[in-house]
Design a binder for these strands. Sequence first.
DNA 1: AAGTAAATGTCGACG
DNA 2: CGTCGACGTTTACTT
Lengths: 264, 264
Amino acid sequence: MSRARITTPSSMGEALDFLRSAMEDRGWVALFASCKALYEGRGASESSEGDVLVIIKPDRTIIVHGPSGYKPLNWQPSGSAITLSEQSGHLEIRALRRSPRELLVLECGRVYAIAALQAPQSPEFYMYLSESEIRDVLVEHPELIEEGLRIAGIERPVEPGFIDMYGYDREGRLVVFEIKRVKAGEQAARQLLRYIEAIKTRGLKDVRGILLAPDFTESAIRLLELSGLEYKRLDLRRLYELASKRLSARGTKSLLDYMRGSKE
Amino acid sequence: MSRARITTPSSMGEALDFLRSAMEDRGWVALFASCKALYEGRGASESSEGDVLVIIKPDRTIIVHGPSGYKPLNWQPSGSAITLSEQSGHLEIRALRRSPRELLVLECGRVYAIAALQAPQSPEFYMYLSESEIRDVLVEHPELIEEGLRIAGIERPVEPGFIDMYGYDREGRLVVFEIKRVKAGEQAARQLLRYIEAIKTRGLKDVRGILLAPDFTESAIRLLELSGLEYKRLDLRRLYELASKRLSARGTKSLLDYMRGSKE
DNA sequence: AAGTAAATGTCGACG
DNA sequence: CGTCGACGTTTACTT
């Protein structure tokens, strides 16, 4: 049996039946129709009838797209209660959200086509780079952090856990790094602080600690400055480029290869 | 004949043909597929393979939705140049935006279902051609620009961005083309000039630059003549006729398909 | 749960 | 082509 089903329904009853069965059991629906939208909630809107693409996702997010532009004409977020019915020759789709109370009603005069997909396998979408990939790039390009830095090791076990990366600055002082792939919060700052204090209690006084992240929360910066620690913003795009180069040098096709386009 | 068409393609070639013809005349497309997404531009992202819904709107907005949430996983705004191709059993969809320079590449390993809707045929929209479609026609019909011209490549990255198209004239001189779908202004002329200067600074002196558009502003023409560049008016009606023919002739692997491949 | 800041924010208006 | 402001902003994170 196929996971995908499609139809160009010849009647509203047929369309309704198809939609009902498609929406059972985590169904996913794309519906081309001519319809009118009514919305009431935080704002209010009413549209004249026109061609739209209605998407219903497995999590019951509903999105109504017009023929142009990035933004949907109407939508209702995940978890809204969707009910289908036939009203005097029209297919009516209602999506109700409880808090805040918002209602979206679609009145479809004509249904051109419906496609449905069962039980989607979600992509493990990840943005930019993993923490270890960032670290690998920084090991090869310590100048991105500061001039004269020499990386000496990674994943070094210390009392409370593992130090992501460490090295020595141009004056020979030990520098300990904590790397975060996403915005670093107070948690990350505290983690670095613990490592630094653990090292200092072992007698090594002249230690620098630097938190590396694409961004920092206010509270993280406050704690770092209070504790005499440092932080340095990472340019993820730059890191991404270098990581791609690294990977393509190993024969893995990366986005940069696509961007290079045709070569002669 | 119905405005809507649907298919659950049994091969990538079939999917590609369906998509190509669906994208004629400001068509809409909804595509259920398992695919991997690569994006680089203002940000950068990469996803593992997973089920997504790809929407292509009549204005060439492309939106990639995952199985949950309001926000798309990836997208490219209206007017981006969308090209379709088959790459070693994968369906590849590329959407290129020039300013800011952003590229989205979708590698679909499986295509579950495609639904397409033909937009209402108001006369002005009937003649709609995207920049990439104009370029594709010109690649196959360089004689529309001048006799003896040979097109050598498209979407070539150069310092400031991407060259739309380039080739060699009957005397073997390199010719760089900038294509505009609408009336070309000073901006477009400057863009071409930047490309030409970038190439000249690399040592290649004998380069021609030609701006291609249905019309030109006075200031654009002034700048072009001042800079020793050329311009050539495009006959959109003629291009449209050829584009329609191109798309209706399916299954024929064109030069474009080879050029889109990363190497020869 | 409420408040705050970022986003590939998008989108429109205006100089 | 910039900058400014609004958005049913959404989303993630802190309090």
